[in-house]
């Protein structure tokens, strides 16, 4: 499956079916990250149930140092 994550085209195994599984795939499941799927911001509780499908546009953001 082809996804666009943070503006980059990436290939993901088809076993990855949900946002939670996608985060596990990238070993981000224990991190503080926020996910936006096709311009819809997801609450953390929605990660388990939200499905990812071919050609989805995903943003994965986090907190960095700033003033």
């Amino acid at each position: 499956m082809e996804l666009f994550i943070n503006g980059e085209k990436v290939n993901i195994p088809n076993e990855v079916k949900t946002v939670a599984m996608l985060l596990q795939h990238y070993q981000l499941d224990q991190k503080v990250v926020i996910v936006e799927l096709n311009e819809v911001i997801l609450e953390k509780a929605q990660h388990q149930e939200t499905r990812v499908t071919d050609r989805d546009k995903i943003e994965i953001v986090h907190f960095v140092g700033g003033g």
């Binding site: 943070n6 990250v33 953001v61 986090h62 960095v64």
Partner: peptide, 12 residues
């Protein structure tokens, strides 16, 4: 304070 930025997903 913090800023919000894209994560480098390849360097978890």
């Amino acid at each position: 304070t913090f800023a919000v930025r894209r994560m480098n997903i390849f360097e978890a």
